[in-house]
Design a protein around this nucleic acid. Sequence first.
DNA 1: ACAAAAGTGTTTTTCTTACACCCATGA
DNA 2: TCATGGGTGTAAGAAAAACACTTTTGT
Lengths: 230, 230
Amino acid sequence: MSPYSQQDRLLVALDSIIFGFDAGALNLLLIKRNFEPASGRWSLMGGFLRAGESLDAAASRVLEELTGLQQVYLEQFHVFGSVDRDPVERTISVGYYSLVNQTVVSRQLSDRYAAHWVPLREVPKLIFDHNAMVTTALARLRYQATHQPIGFELLPERFTLSQLQKLYEAIFDRPIDAGNFRRRIKKMDFIERLEEKDFSDSKRGAWYYRFHPERYAEALKNGGTFLLTP
Amino acid sequence: MSPYSQQDRLLVALDSIIFGFDAGALNLLLIKRNFEPASGRWSLMGGFLRAGESLDAAASRVLEELTGLQQVYLEQFHVFGSVDRDPVERTISVGYYSLVNQTVVSRQLSDRYAAHWVPLREVPKLIFDHNAMVTTALARLRYQATHQPIGFELLPERFTLSQLQKLYEAIFDRPIDAGNFRRRIKKMDFIERLEEKDFSDSKRGAWYYRFHPERYAEALKNGGTFLLTP
DNA sequence: ACAAAAGTGTTTTTCTTACACCCATGA
DNA sequence: TCATGGGTGTAAGAAAAACACTTTTGT
């Protein structure tokens, strides 16, 4: 179609914006680079796409390399392609964000990289265009969290409504009325109340809930759509 | 970070999903390929990213090559990266969709490519994963059209509310109540009623409106957000 | 008793939806 | 006069928002 040459072939990078939730705050898993380029500086975890590998597979591989986790929620959100975004060599980078259960991840972190959970509000200056990537990823997360049942990926299997509310407050950075929030959740019959309570945050105890994938699939089939506005 | 080699460098393609609106229907600008690979088959317009060129610039170039137009609405929506998506050689492709005023474009079509406007409902089998790209682009268009004032890109400068309604009906493929639609539009003071009428569709005449970018910017500054649900 | 988290009830307001109706005009 | 696209009015119901209130239990 258009003329192109060997020099138009270039490296395709992937960068992971890894979200976790703990202590009422959204956190990012960042690495303090102990390798070139930009050794010693903060950055996102990343890697390069290999010849025989799909983008999604590469994103999974990069994430597993750092966290040891497989099967985590991972979503491509944007490709960053400014000519000078990487000062070393021309690359484009595909941004993926992932949602992980922070408490599980913290136990499995690779010691190969100096990885740290950093509150979203305190993210330092990162290399290249990584700060812009974080901003874009957060915007996409906010959208997805209102239209798809993905918030649960950031929580344990079993969670209380208070935890869920705090999560949404963290994602959208604004307070939510507890009564109204609970009412809306209770209308979603794919969020199932279990017969156990959590006593870690109160003496009275709060019912555990869990996301019920089968019931959600059922609801979708019947024309339902997830919608949870902040 | 991870080891990579010359063989990990690859071509980055761009493909354009070009939307137009005419005769009450959404249309796509497709080309009947007169070049290899897959000569003789239908496909999206595309091209390859060049060494010193940003993704957005490349997408603009590809679009201008076909339509002769500059400054059209163009938005990246997804990267397609399956290993075998292009049978000739491993490539990844960045999908952009664009919204153009179909009547203007039709007059400026490059004769280098055999380009045709095809109603969205009648899109033929396209090469590679192009049909999937169209589906994804439409989903993104639907989202953007409800959350950003972009529908106007598909209409002439001046349009009637009936035209706008038909456009939204085409985008969402469902009927919209005229009265309710008008009321919602009228509340948006960045959609300005002009002092002229269009008599092409009725004897009585319908007021022309136009999108007022400055007023919209003003509304945004005051914390307003565009929302037009179908 | 009271603090604190969990959970329920109620009122007000706003938005959506459906649909009836009027207007203007050329054939 | 009637068909047609343009445009307004309105009542019923659903959903969102605000907030008062009750429950439970360890200290």
